[in-house]
Design a protein around this nucleic acid. Structure first.
Lengths: 113, 113
DNA sequence: TTGTTATACATATAAGTCTTATGTATAATA
DNA sequence: TATTATACATAAGACTTATATGTATAACAA
């Protein structure tokens, strides 16, 4: 079951920044696979969304890049800059607060573990 | 503190349907105030988002309306149709799953109560 | 009584984000 | 040798929301 895309809207930057805070460097395709794996295929990032977002985060100074060749194929690694690390924490914290607020607003009971 | 609007994107229909599942009928302005109150001002629905969405939900058959006059002022009440009640449950369930998935993906620890 | 704020509806234009489609190319596997 | 996976990227369009604007009544404060 895939989540309706409207739900995922607005979470892409947060997801990218969080993954990069846990991994020194990642490349685009790797990010899509990681998210797919970690969510049991329920969130599948599309390239048309991912690459422009990576470029935007880089343009904003949150990410730095290094390009490497694997054989003849290009691979572009992204890492968090100092500002990116701060931004990552900020985004995560905001998302966590947002979930708490929504949980209360929607009166969602936590599942019994 | 207001949540960045990108986070709220995609949750509007869910919020409306949930509130209407708890209240026999509500009017637009009332919904904005209820959300403002329940979220301590952190989510403020704008009219430019709310009314088109209410109209869309009505057009899709999820909401029914009745117009009343309070003095000379029009008030338009919205209620869930049978399909709307089902949709409300569906949306809530999906959102709840989505939060669980995101919590896992972002490795967010529950706050100690 | 007059100005301001709150109530209450609505829409149009613009902005932002994402989807879909397309393009290029190499590597691995059936 | 054909298909799938890897890996980048962009363009056009769709969808959702923000901002601005419009209309009008009611309540309240100066």
């Amino acid at each position: 079951m895939l989540f309706s895309s409207e739900l995922i809207k607005g979470t892409l930057k947060t997801i990218i920044l969080k993954l990069l805070s846990e991994n020194k460097r990642m490349y685009g395709y790797e990010i899509t696979q990681k998210v797919k794996d970690l969510t049991a295929d329920r969130i599948q990032l599309t390239e048309g969304a991912l690459y422009p977002t990576l470029h935007a985060l880089e343009a904003d100074g949150f990410l730095t890049t290094e390009t490497e060749y694997i054989g003849k194929r290009v691979r572009k690694y992204y890492s968090l800059s100092k500002e990116g690390k701060a931004k990552s924490k900020e985004k995560l914290s905001e998302f966590s607060d947002f979930m708490d607020t929504m949980k209360f607003l929607l009166d969602i009971k936590p599942k019994v573990a």
